[in-house]
Design a protein around this nucleic acid. Structure first.
Length: 551
DNA sequence: GTACCTTTGAAGGAA
DNA sequence: TTCCTTCAAAGGTAC
C-alpha cells in the first residue's frame, strides 16, 4: 500500500494512516494527551453510566461477565469472545494496541501476497506487530488463503477459503454476528473443526457448540450457503458469488480470494447467498445473506432467484429490479468500529437503545488513537475495494429509495419557515464562534481522518490535509463539528436531556444538511437510559470544550 | 409492522 | 469544488 510505503521506516505503521494527525508534532503530542484524557473521560462516563444504571462495573471483561445476559446465544458469544480476548491480550502484552479493536478482521492486515497495498510486500512494522501480536492466527490464515488461491476452481477455492475457517477460529469477530443472525444452530462442517483449534495461539479453540453452531450450522456440502463472515467471498460450490456480472465477476473474484485480507473482508459482509445462480439450490435453505438482501426474496418466499440476479441485465425490468438482490453499501470505518464495539458498550452501559449507544460509540470513535482509527479506515478501504471489485457495476445510488424518506426529510421540506429560519440563524452565528475552522473540517476533517481515497490519506501520510488544523483534534470528542451537526456533541446531550430543548433546538438546526440530526433531537426525548448516558457524557464534555478552546 | 433515532463515513448528484 | 442527500448497522421506541 502506498501509505505504508510512503511512511517508510518505523513510521510506516504509526504515522501513515491519518493525515490529519501528522500536521504538527506538538499537536500530536497534545492529541495523545487529549486522547488519553478522552479515554479517561470515556471511562468515567462509562463508570458513571454504569453506576447510575448498573452498580456493577469495573473492567470491561468483568462487566461483560457481570452484565445482564440479554440473550443466551449472545452470552455464549460474549464469553467466548472474552475468553479469546483475554488470551490475545496476554499474548499481546505490548499494549501498542490496547484493545482488540478489530477482532472482526483478524487477518486483514496480513501482509499477504495479494495485498495490493503493499507494493513491496513489506508491511509496516506497526502493522506487522499488530498482526502478530494481535492476531497470531493470522499466519495460518494467510497460508491457508494461499492454498485456497491455488485451488483450481474458484468456487472450490472459495469454499475452502480459509477465511471461513478463520472466522471460526476467531469467534471474537463481531462481524460474525451477521451469521449468527441468519443461521440456525447446527453442527459445524467437519473440515472446519481442525481449523478451529488454533495451534499458534495455543488457545484451546474449543468448538463451543454455542459459539459455533450459530455460525456454522451447515453441513460441509452446504458450506456455500453459510454466510460465514469470511466465507461469503468465496463463491459457493463454484457458483458465482454475486449477482452482478456473473461472468465478469468470476475471474476477478478468485484473485480476491487469494488475498487473505480481502477474503476476510468479503466474508465479513458480502456473501453470495443470494446469488442468483444457485445451481445447488442452496438458497432454499432460506438463509438470508446479511450483505445481500433481496427484498424480492423476502417478499416472495416461493420466488425463485430472479434471473436478473444471475446476470445483471443492462436494462432490467421493474420486476427484475425488484427482484435484484440488494447489495448493501460497504461499511465505513465507523460502522466497522460500531459493529465491533457495540456489544462492549452495551455491556458496559446496559443501554439497549442504539441511538444512545451510537452516541457513545461516536464519542469513543473520536477518542480512538489515530492508529486505532487507521485500522478501521484501512479495513473500510479494503472493504470498499473488495466491494467495488465484487460489484463493479454497483453504485451507492442503486440503494437509494430503498428506504422510505425519513420523517425529518419531510419535516425539513415542510418545515415551517420560522422553524428553519430560527434554526439556521443561530447556527450560522454559532458556528463561527464555535468552530469556523472546524466546520469545513467537520465533514472534511473526518474525511481527512478517513481518507476518502485510501491511497490519498493512508497512502500518503505526508499528504497533508492542508486545511485541517482541526485534524489535530480528531481525537477530541468535540472536534467533530460535523457536517450534519454543527454543534459539538456537547450540545446534543443538553438539548436532548434537556432542560430547554427549545433553546437548544433553535441552535441546532444549524446542520447544513439539516436533514439529519436536528429534528430528531427535538422531536424525541431520549429515554431515561439515554439520558443517563448523555448526562455522563455531558459531564465529561466540559473538558473537551476546554481543550478545544485552549486550542 | 414499520419508521425513527443516533452515530460517522462514503458516494454521488446538484449547483 | 462545494454542498447536500442517502445509505450503511443496530435495536429500543413510537406510531
Amino acid at each position: 500500500m502506498p501509505q505504508l510505503n510512503g511512511g517508510g521506516g518505523d513510521e510506516l505503521g504509526a504515522n501513515d494512516e491519518l493525515i490529519s494527525f501528522k500536521d504538527e508534532g506538538e499537536q500530536e503530542e497534545k492529541i495523545s494527551e487529549n486522547v488519553s484524557a478522552e479515554r479517561d473521560l470515556d471511562d468515567v462516563k462509562s463508570s458513571l453510566v454504569n453506576e447510575s444504571e448498573n452498580n456493577s462495573s469495573s473492567s470491561d471483561s468483568e462487566q461483560t461477565e457481570r452484565r445482564p445476559q440479554p440473550r443466551a446465544d449472545l452470552e455464549s458469544y460474549e464469553k467466548a469472545r472474552e475468553y479469546f480476548t483475554e488470551a490475545l491480550r496476554r499474548q499481546q502484552d505490548g499494549g501498542f494496541f490496547k484493545s482488540p479493536h478489530y477482532p472482526g478482521y483478524p487477518f486483514l492486515m496480513i501482509p499477504d501476497l495479494g495485498n495490493p497495498y503493499l507494493s513491496n510486500g513489506a508491511l509496516s512494522p506497526s502493522a506487522r506487530t499488530y498482526l502478530q501480536m494481535k492476531w497470531p492466527l493470522l499466519d495460518v490464515p494467510g497460508t491457508a488463503a494461499l492454498k485456497d488461491s491455488r485451488s483450481p476452481t474458484p468456487g472450490h477455492l472459495s469454499n475452502k477459503v480459509p477465511v471461513v475457517q478463520h472466522a471460526h477460529m476467531h469467534p471474537l469477530t463481531p462481524l460474525i454476528t451477521y451469521s449468527s443472525e441468519h443461521f440456525s444452530p447446527g453442527t459445524p462442517p467437519a473440515h472446519l473443526s481442525p481449523e478451529i483449534l488454533d495451534p499458534k495461539t495455543g488457545i484451546p479453540r474449543t468448538p463451543h457448540p454455542s459459539e459455533l453452531s450459530p455460525y456454522y450450522p451447515l453441513s460441509p456440502g452446504a458450506m456455500g450457503q453459510i454466510p460465514h463472515p469470511l466465507g461469503w467471498l468465496v463463491p459457493q460450490q463454484g457458483q458465482p458469488m454475486y449477482p452482478i456480472t456473473a461472468g465478469g465477476f468470476r475471474h476477478p473474484y478468485p484473485a480476491l480470494a487469494m488475498n487473505a485480507s480481502m477474503s476476510s473482508l468479503v466474508s465479513s459482509r458480502f456473501s453470495p447467498h443470494i446469488v442468483p445462480h444457485h445451481p445447488h439450490g442452496l438458497h432454499q435453505t432460506g438463509i438470508p445473506h446479511p450483505a445481500i438482501v433481496s427484498p424480492a426474496i423476502k417478499q416472495e418466499p416461493n420466488g425463485e432467484l430472479s434471473p436478473a440476479a444471475n446476470t445483471k441485465s443492462p436494462v432490467p425490468t421493474k420486476k427484475e429490479e425488484d427482484k435484484k438482490p440488494h447489495i448493501k453499501k460497504p461499511l465505513n470505518a465507523f460502522m466497522l468500529y460500531m459493529k465491533e464495539m457495540r456489544a462492549k458498550v452495551v455491556a458496559e452501559c446496559t443501554l439497549k437503545e442504539s441511538a444512545a449507544i451510537n452516541q457513545i460509540l461516536g464519542r469513543r470513535w473520536h477518542s480512538l488513537s489515530r492508529e486505532e482509527q487507521a485500522k478501521y479506515y484501512e479495513l473500510a478501504r479494503k472493504e470498499r475495494q473488495l466491494h467495488s471489485q465484487l460489484y463493479p457495476g454497483w453504485s451507492a445510488r442503486d440503494n437509494y429509495g430503498r428506504r422510505k424518506k425519513r420523517k425529518r426529510d419531510n419535516k425539513t421540506d415542510s418545515t415551517p419557515e420560522d422553524f428553519s429560519a430560527g434554526n439556521k440563524k443561530p447556527c450560522v452565528q454559532y458556528l463561527p464562534q464555535e468552530k469556523m475552522i472546524d466546520s469545513p473540517a467537520s465533514s472534511h476533517g473526518s474525511m481527512l481522518d478517513s481518507p476518502a481515497t485510501p491511497s490519498a490519506a493512508l497512502a500518503s501520510p505526508a499528504a497533508p490535509a492542508p486545511t485541517h488544523s482541526e485534524q489535530a483534534q480528531p481525537l477530541s470528542l468535540t472536534t467533530k463539528p460535523d457536517r450534519h451537526h454543527h454543534f459539538p456533541l456537547l450540545s446534543k446531550p443538553s438539548s436532548s436531556s434537556c432542560t430547554s430543548s427549545s433553546s437548544s433546538s433553535s441552535s441546532q438546526p444549524t446542520s447544513s444538511s439539516g436533514s439529519q440530526s436536528t429534528p430528531p433531537l427535538l422531536s424525541r426525548p431520549l429515554p431515561l437510559a439515554a439520558f443517563h448516558s448523555h448526562h455522563a457524557l455531558f459531564q465529561s464534555q466540559p473538558l473537551s470544550l476546554v481543550t478545544k478552546s485552549a486550542d
